[in-house]
């Protein structure tokens, strides 16, 4: 899933400082699962903003709603009748949501309430980690099922570098050295030969380096 994190309160307060009436829009997709922008987080942000503005003696009116998804035009349409009623629309989806909303309603002023952080998964309750960088050419099977592009700090295809210690990355002791995991797994599986081959240069054209990407499926078009 796409993992996001709510922006600091100060930053959001600054965004809405001149607004009297706003709409906070959550998303029932990834950001609900990672507890960043679902119905509950919309409620918490709304209550927090109301309190902060009450304290400044400058109350703000806030409506709340959560869309099925914000990355599909059809789910955005529901805002059609309401978009014009607000000084600001604050989206709690990943950055795709506010982009969709502001494109669909050119008159609306739309702000992102989240920072979209990475593609990853939950490791335990309240902990998420990055697993994928969407390079567009998956090769994890060559690395014991781990992705060195996303999970090695230097994206080494022929790691590990000399800086890891006790299975941790030199960049941060909180980061597992993915090459430590790869080497240990492949050695255990008796597949050392997979490691001793020099992995060729990566073709980055399928990644962001080839420009913004698009997938067209003719069979699905209506």
């Amino acid at each position: 899933m796409i993992v996001g994190e709510r922006k600091p309160l100060d930053e959001i307060l600054e965004m809405v400082k001149d607004a009297k009436k706003i709409l906070i829009v959550g998303c029932k997709g990834c950001v609900t699962v990672c507890n960043a922008g679902g119905t509950k987080e919309v409620g918490i942000l709304a209550a927090t903003l109301r309190l902060a503005r009450l304290k400044e003696d400058n109350p703000i009116e806030i409506d709340e709603m959560t869309l099925e998804r914000q990355c599909d035009p059809e789910y955005i349409e529901i805002l059609e009748e309401r978009a014009a009623n607000y000084d600001i629309i604050l989206s709690m989806a990943c950055s795709i949501g506010p982009q969709y909303i502001s494109e669909k309603f050119p008159e609306a002023i739309v702000y992102p309430a989240l920072n979209t952080c990475f593609m990853g998964g939950a490791q335990e309750h309240g902990v998420w980690a990055e697993f994928c960088q969407a390079c567009g050419d998956c090769k994890i099977h060559l690395f014991g099922g781990y992705c060195p592009i996303a999970r090695c700090s230097k994206s080494l295809l022929n790691g590990p570098c000399g800086g890891s210690a006790d299975g941790k990355c030199e960049v941060d002791k909180e980061i597992d050295c993915v090459w430590h995991l790869i080497v240990n797994k492949l050695m255990k599986q008796g597949k050392l030969d997979q490691l001793t081959q020099v992995k060729p240069l990566k073709n980055w054209t399928t990644s962001r380096d080839g420009g913004p990407r698009k997938i067209v499926r003719e069979d699905l078009k209506i």
Partner: peptide, 11 residues
């Protein structure tokens, strides 16, 4: 008890 309940009490 949820975060929201605590905030609502203040509201």
């Amino acid at each position: 008890v949820d975060i929201l309940h605590l905030l609502k009490a203040f509201e």
